[in-house]
Amino acid sequence: MRIALNARILQAPRTGIGHYVAELVSALAHEPDVELALFHGWGWSSVLPEAAMPGYSRLTPLLRQIPGAYQARRWLEQRRFDQNQTQGIDLYHEPSLWPLAFNGPTVITLHDLTHLHYPDTQPPARLREIERRLTDGVQRARLILTDSQYVADEAQACFGLPAERFVVAPLGVAARFRPRAPEAINQVLKAHGVEAREYFLCVGTLEPRKNLTLALRAHARLPETVRQRFPLLIAGMAGWQRDQFNDELRASLAAGQVCLLGYLPDEDLAQLLAGARALVFPSLYEGFGLPVLEAMASGTPVILTRHSAMPEVAADAGNYIEPDDPDTLRDAMTLLIDDPAHWQACREAGLQRAKLFSWERCAKVTARAYRQAMGD
């Protein structure tokens, strides 16, 4: 099977969907009947591009201010895409939103329905594009891949589609997310001024949906001596409405109790995850919650909300909190500090849980979906 896969998202710094595309492409290389042609917006390639870093494009903020810019870029991408449609493409896989037009079977990946649940967490221009294109793309797709059963169920209800149109392909965990000895990660930890197991870590783009203000408020309710010993590190790009954090951050940043790390290289983030006391992940809504899986695979306990798809990932290995109650998060953090037996039990449960997920499994389910969509 020759599969056209839209890999344009890999031009941006890799967050959740970008990592999904990169890992899936690598894993599909081991499927003997799958040949990928990667479309990167302006042309085609057979190899993954290097991961971009923040600042990769200064045009994106400008495009948001130009009327019709999204539509113009879309038209150009469609023209480029059409140039290769006659070159033996059997199926088109759109791994994110807004599939291009293709005269053949199409499979899309629907990661979540954030725009329906939390429209205020999307920049207005992006929200308009989602609303214009997503419904049509879902209706045209032969099959719809989802990362979780939760998203499959809510998409069935939202779009009025039968269950057989959906295939659940849980995400995997990259090899870099693994337990590490303190001496193996000391250099990265030292660069950020922390010691192994003596900091909490948040991972995610700084945007409202990630609910990072809850982490800030909970951490601020810890005793002063505890905040000094166990600072809160926040790793992620500056997202939409980052200014919302200014009030909560100012005092904690000045005291050295909270540190904004920005977007980190993959290996640095993996080492920080392996060394944290716990991952704090208070997100309001996730179609999967990849950092939760990555933390568990790294031997680090997770604190998370029992909302959306996240319990499918963490199951009994998670420390669950209420998304609007900083006291429950403070108590969960305190327990993981004060009770070594509880911390160790959470670590072991997470390691066992993470073994159930792999990119190889995700690729096999995806390849079967390709065959099914082609009628084999």
Results as ranks from 00 to 15, higher is better:
177 F>R: 08
76 L>Y: 02
75 W>P: 00
189 L>Y: 03
182 P>K: 15
152 A>F: 01
122 Q>V: 06
121 T>C: 11
122 Q>E: 13
194 V>I: 11
119 P>H: 08
184 A>S: 15
168 V>C: 10
102 F>H: 09
109 T>R: 04
135 T>E: 08
152 A>K: 09
161 L>D: 01
151 V>G: 01
190 K>N: 12
161 L>S: 09
81 F>R: 08
153 D>C: 07
121 T>F: 10
131 E>N: 14
90 D>H: 13
181 A>E: 12
118 Y>A: 04
99 P>A: 06
196 A>S: 13
163 A>H: 11
96 S>K: 07
94 E>V: 11
153 D>K: 07
81 F>V: 00
168 V>T: 15
168 V>I: 10
164 E>Q: 14
148 S>R: 08
81 F>L: 05
109 T>F: 03
179 P>I: 15
99 P>Q: 03
187 Q>P: 00
174 A>R: 13
175 A>K: 12
140 R>P: 02
84 N>S: 05
111 H>Q: 14
102 F>T: 03
198 E>T: 14
127 L>H: 06
165 R>A: 01
173 V>Q: 13
188 V>G: 01
95 P>E: 07
196 A>W: 10
85 Q>I: 01
81 F>Y: 09
197 R>L: 14
100 L>Q: 04
167 V>N: 08
127 L>K: 02
176 R>Q: 14
119 P>C: 08
166 F>I: 00
159 F>M: 04
80 R>K: 05
95 P>C: 07
136 D>P: 01
114 T>W: 06
148 S>V: 08
138 V>D: 07
136 D>A: 11
113 L>I: 08
137 G>W: 09
102 F>L: 03
101 A>L: 07
184 A>N: 08
178 R>M: 15
111 H>R: 10
183 E>F: 12
119 P>D: 09
126 R>K: 12
129 E>R: 12
155 A>R: 11
85 Q>G: 01
106 T>G: 07
